[in-house]
Design a protein around this nucleic acid. Structure first.
Length: 482
RNA sequence: GGGGCCAUCGUCUAGUGGUUAGGACACCGGAUUUUCAAUCCGAUAACCGGAGUUCAAUUCUCCGUGGCCCUACCA
């Protein structure tokens, strides 16, 4: 049975990179009909917080990433680690080290100055284990180091990259625990992956260099080594590892901007992996069917927000077409406070209007585009109306507004929305030949007057949903500005 | 400094010992009886460099260059 793990460290809100790694584990496991274990790697007591774990769990679930076991917490497994640590100590494949931090820092400094590799000199490696144990019992503090047997080849076959070889010469006797009841990352990972019967370790490529160290620990115990697969990293625009400083990194940021979970999943799957037929809009189920580690790209990938925008727009378009009610209900919380959500029917009607199809890249676009129907006209300067490109002069605008107002007054508004749209549209278009103007000279000022913005829905759509009274008010207001 | 990983359009990527090196996003242009947007159509755009192997290398090997990651009593 294939078993993978999702092992975030709860030292911050759910990071987009963590979500991507979790997603790949999820896709792989579900594709293989295997099991998924969630494990909170909270051994760093200073930085780990329960609220972060909650955020991570909630965020992953929101994306549709679920697991079969867990959450386990490393902080609740100290007795277990202690047992294994003692085993290593007993076998003398690990030993107590009493060296002071100061001495080690100084040593490292000197080695760096001489351009030597920075390594522990093994001062405590020859101490008598019994004597060391006695010192610790007497209260002296000591870390625990793994005794690295030199001259072994640390070889593993990465499922994505193939054979990778390190020499044990690269590694010194590294610290695996601060104390018997306070273990470090490389140790806890190996113990947990062993105890939890993990068969495939799928993680970011920043862990490639940790792999040989972990193999050393597996060997110290004589345990079987799982399969490894190292994923390419998600990068900032400057090709450094995606970071808070240069990018929005937490899932919450993206949700708050109005990206849909399904779209985020789709996008994340495509950062480093591609569908065999080049399909780009893929649901979670389709991803599970198609996913294959052999199609994972090797090189790191820049987080391209424009592509996310496009994917997100596709999902919004589809969601509105298929089920406005469900869509509005699902994201009600997002819209609350941004648009008058009590006008449910009108909002849904507007969203379904063909004029809006494809206009929204994010939920926030919906809020900003719909605002024009519910809020007072924004302050704008006459220059918005006097569009240079279309050669709209004040005289032309004045005439257009006067004629438009007359036409709007004369039209019978007591008809259905689509009929109304057509009548209004025809009436405005009729002004073009009547006044001997060009389309832009008529349509631009009208749309600008109705919306007070450069970007807005179509003029006829604006009129229909604004209503006769408001339409006239806004046209007259614009006329008065000239 | 040491070790490792990586390298195809601006970006995400496909692909092959012989291809017009394909797609998507972005950008640009056109159309929609010159409205923003949307939509449709189109164009521009890439195999890091040098050797080697080979009849033939973007593809295989080596070297170089560049980027990244690790090099903690973080994970």
């Amino acid at each position: 049975m294939i078993r993978v793990r999702i092992p975030p460290s709860p030292t911050g809100l759910l990071h987009i990179g963590t979500a991507r790694t979790a997603l790949y584990n999820y896709l792989f496991a579900r594709h293989e009909k295997g099991q998924i274990v969630f494990r909170s790697e909270d051994t760093d007591k200073e930085r780990s917080k329960k609220e972060y774990e909650d955020d991570i769990v909630h965020g992953l679930n929101l994306l549709g990433i679920t697991w079969d076991e867990g959450p386990y917490r490393q902080s609740e497994r100290t007795e277990n680690y202690k047992k294994y640590l003692k085993e290593l100590l007993k076998k003398n494949t690990a030993y107590y080290c009493f060296c002071s931090k100061e001495r080690l820092d100084k040593m490292r400094e000197e080695q760096t100055a001489k351009k030597f590799p920075t390594r522990y000199d093994g001062a405590c490696s020859t101490l008598d284990p019994k004597a060391s144990a006695a010192r610790v019992k007497a209260g002296e503090s000591a870390v625990i180091r793994l005794r690295v047997i030199q001259d072994q080849e640390l070889r593993f076959k990465d499922l994505i990259r193939g054979e990778t070889v390190f020499s044990s010469k690269e590694f010194d006797d590294f610290v695996i625990a601060r104390r018997l009841d306070d273990c470090l990352y490389n140790f806890t990972v190996v113990v947990d992956d062993h105890d939890m019967k993990i068969t495939h370790v799928i993680r970011g490529e920043d862990h490639i260099s940790n792999t040989p160290k972990q193999i050393l620990i597996y060997r110290a115990f004589g345990w079987d080594i799982p399969e490894f697969a190292h994923l390419p990293l998600i990068l900032n625009e400057d090709r450094t590892k995606m970071s808070k400083r240069k990018n929005k990194v937490s899932l919450n940021d993206y949700l708050a901007e109005g990206y849909l979970p399904e779209a985020i999943v789709n996008f994340l799957a495509l950062v480093g992996w591609s569908h065999p037929e080049g399909k780009e809009i893929l649901s979670m189920d389709e991803l599970i069917v198609a996913f294959d580690l052999s199609r994972v790209h090797h090189g790191g990938a820049i987080f391209d927000i424009k592509k996310l925008d496009w994917i997100n727009g596709e999902y919004i378009k589809k969601a509105i077409q298929e089920d406005v009610d469900g869509f509005f209900k699902k994201y009600f919380k997002f819209f609350e406070g941004k648009i008058p959500t009590q006008n449910t029917d009108l909002i849904k009607k507007i969203l379904k209007d063909p004029d809006f199809e494809g206009r929204f890249k994010k939920l926030s676009d919906i809020a900003s585009e719909l605002r024009v129907f519910f809020e007072a006209l924004p302050a704008y300067s006459p220059s918005l109306i006097l569009n240079e490109k279309f050669k709209v002069t004040p005289e032309i605008a004045k005439t257009v507004f006067q004629k438009a107002i007359e036409a709007v007054r004369d039209i019978d508004w007591d008809v259905g929305d689509s009929a109304k749209t057509k009548v209004l549209s025809d009436a405005m278009m009729a002004l073009v030949p009547a006044l001997g103007l060009k389309n832009g000279q008529v349509l631009w000022p009208i749309r600008a007057a109705l919306s007070g913005a450069e970007r807005s829905p179509n003029f006829a759509t604006l009129m229909v949903y604004l209503g006769k009274e408001e339409t006239l008010k806004r046209l007259e207001f614009a006329l008065g500005k000239l």
